[in-house]
Nucleic acid binder design. Structure first.
Length: 586
RNA sequence: GCGCCUGUAGCUCAGUGGGACAGAGCAACGGACUUCUAAUCCGUAGGUCGCAGGUUCGAGCCCUGCCAGGCGCGCCA
């Protein structure tokens, strides 16, 4: 069961850490069931406060949850417990006052109880839940969307792998996460831009160029010593061959800087093209591909560093220039310009993030591999030094993916050039399976990905479970159409035929969906959608197995088709957010 | 040594700014296919939430210490 809680405050609080907005979607056409209860309680408390019964309590924060135990009602609130101290009354007494002040719409509440230390438990009329189906239908495929993040501009920067080699599975996880997150933020009303940052400047590009050059010499039969830290992968050899075909033979001996640069650019562009293709096939599309080169071309680096300089956060020592990161809690100050005069990678990142905020994003989200986590404090320091509220930059760290095959680890060493690429995984298990599995864990938990298990079309594999539910329903609708059953135009009153416990349970799950999407946005956690969909699919399968949807009873058939259409619509919406296909048949 | 992440059932993991008897999937065991798709369903069993303190009316969740695993501590990216 999902058990979402809803935090609310009476006075609309300013933006809080790690959340985009406290302005909930009260103006949405589709109001979640829980929201209806929150509003009900809120109105009662406000009324009591105006009467002076509860005193002028300053912005009490209370919760409305779905209790774990059905006996505790459909919703429960701790509002009385929270208010007790401020009101200088016993919690249960406060609860009684609040209950008396409730003014629910007709047909909503079956009963309200005070329980335990002072919880208020709400039991909704069964028929009230039917409203959910009308909501879903009225939303026309947007049920689950909200205005939670309306007016907020968000940038999600993810993957951003260096164009020195193909994407590996770790990048795949970052890609799935970033893309799903962007979808979630879009669904909740944010204005979202997806961006890929291309590190195409500096030493690594030289190394790449030299690696290609040496491979080219090799292909020509020239004696070579491959650079110690060169890129080893076979793809370099392939590219070297292409380079020779296009540019003709390379000279013997050591290359001049121009040649290295040309080779580096050639390899970088080719690799980036392959990366773009991999991502496109993985269903990931970016709004912007931002090249580090532009930071130099457009003098962004100069401007950003000048800003820090003006604030007094740069100084010279040991022949280098340093950023005073320790002023903001980082372990040590960081070099931004080396003794050699060349700026560091960090300097570029300062400039890039300066630019991000110049571009007007309210929220900037970076998705990095967990091996970069040591880098977070210094970047947060930069943001603060630039005078930007630190919570406007959120760095999500994606933990490692351990690839397994039949439970055995698959060897992966970047150094030797033998690593499993995203392309290989996609080809082997398919895009949908890979994405779903990547999104089946919290980002900060390590992920085990068993290639053999991922290919199995059994219940060991959760991916198909959800897709199958969708396809199953598609099959039902096809048959209904064949039989000429007109259910979509059925009168609303037929829904009263949905009286089974399973049906009520499904309505409640569906009713919780918008809150799940909002919570996923608030916490930046797509896996919540994955879990919800699995739960919904489970309900459907059980319902399907136990009861026939198409029967001689036309009215009941219509009612059930309306219900399962609601399920299918939500499954489709959720799978779309995850970037996974919702198949019509399997 | 310092820092970050993780530690919940045999395995993989959920558990939402603390809330009312700890959940799911898989594996195990026992059942269900003349049915709208069995890629499914039903049932049983399974946990001192790493350990020890603390805060609280209430702690898997917050604080402190310890233990274990992963990662990071470059004028690399």
């Amino acid at each position: 069961m999902n058990n979402n809680s809803f935090i609310s405050s009476l006075n609309s609080e300013p933006e809080t850490l790690n959340s985009f907005s406290s302005a909930e979607a009260t103006t949405d056409a589709i109001m979640s069931m829980r929201r209806r209860v929150v509003d009900l309680v809120q109105a009662a408390v406000l009324a009591l406060q105006e009467q002076g019964v509860l005193g002028a309590a300053p912005a009490p924060v209370f919760q409305v949850d779905i209790p774990k135990i059905p006996e505790h009602g459909d919703f429960a609130t701790n509002v009385a417990l929270v208010l007790a101290k401020l009101a200088r009354k016993a919690p249960r007494q406060v609860a009684e006052l609040i209950i008396a002040a409730l003014s629910p719409p007709p047909g909503m509440l079956a009963r309200v109880e005070i329980a335990g230390p002072g919880f208020i438990n709400f039991f909704l009329e069964d028929s009230f839940w039917l409203q959910v189906l009308a909501d879903i239908e009225a939303a026309q495929g947007t049920y689950g969307d909200s205005t939670f993040g309306a007016g907020k501009r968000v940038q999600v920067e993810f993957v951003s792998a260096n164009p020195t080699g193909p994407l590996h599975v770790g990048h795949g996880r970052g890609a799935a996460l970033g893309d799903a997150l962007a979808n979630i933020l879009t669904a909740t009303g944010h204005e979202v831009e997806r961006e890929y940052y291309i590190n195409d400047v500096g030493l690594q590009m030289q190394t790449l160029g030299l690696s290609l050059f040496r491979r080219a010499q090799e292909l020509q039969g020239l004696p070579v010593t491959f650079p110690e830290h060169g890129y080893q992968g076979d793809y370099i050899k392939t590219l070297a061959g292409q380079y020779l075909a296009e540019h003709g033979p390379v000279p013997a001996g050591d290359p001049d800087p121009e040649t290295v640069e040309r080779c580096g650019r050639f390899a970088g562009e080719a690799i980036l093209a392959a990366i773009r293709q991999d991502l496109a096939d993985f269903g990931v599309h970016f709004d912007h591909w931002y090249s580090e080169t532009r930071l130099f071309q457009d003098q962004i680096l100069d401007k950003a560093l000048a800003t820090l300089q003006a604030q007094g956060y740069l100084y010279e020592a040991d022949g280098a220039w340093w950023f005073r990161a320790t002023a903001f809690g980082d372990e040590k100050d960081r070099v931004i310009r080396r003794q050699t005069g060349a700026t560091t990678y960090f300097a570029s990142d300062i400039a890039y993030h300066w630019l991000k905020f110049q571009r007007g994003f309210d929220q900037v989200i970076d998705i990095w591999g967990a091996d970069h986590h040591g880098y977070v404090p210094r970047l947060q320091a930069v943001v603060q030094a630039l005078g930007i509220a630190p919570e406007r930059l959120k760095v999500l760290l994606v933990q490692l993916v351990s690839l397994l095959r039949e439970g055995q680890p698959v060897a992966m060493t970047t150094r030797g050039g033998t690593f499993v690429t995203l392309r290989q995984v996609m080809d082997e298990v398919g895009k949908d399976v890979a994405r779903f599995i990547f999104l089946s864990r919290r980002a900060d938990a390590q992920l085990e990905f068993d290639l053999e298990l991922a290919k199995k079309q059994t219940s060991e594999n959760p991916v198909y479970y959800v897709q199958y539910a969708h396809a199953r329903l598609a099959s039902v609708f096809r048959l209904a159409a064949e039989r000429g059953i007109a259910w979509q135009s059925a009168a609303r009153s037929v829904l009263q035929r949905l009286t089974l416990p399973e049906e009520l349970a499904i309505l409640k799950v569906l009713a919780g969906y918008p809150d799940v999407v909002t919570a996923a946005a608030r916490h930046l956690e797509p896996h919540r959608i994955t879990y919800f969909l699995t739960e919904l699919a489970k309900q459907l399968h059980a319902y399907y197995y136990k009861h026939r949807f198409l029967s001689d009873d036309l009215e009941l058939t219509q009612a059930r088709l309306l219900l399962v259409r609601g399920i299918q619509t939500v499954l489709d919406h959720g799978l779309r957010i995850l970037g996974v296909e919702a198949p019509e048949s399997m």
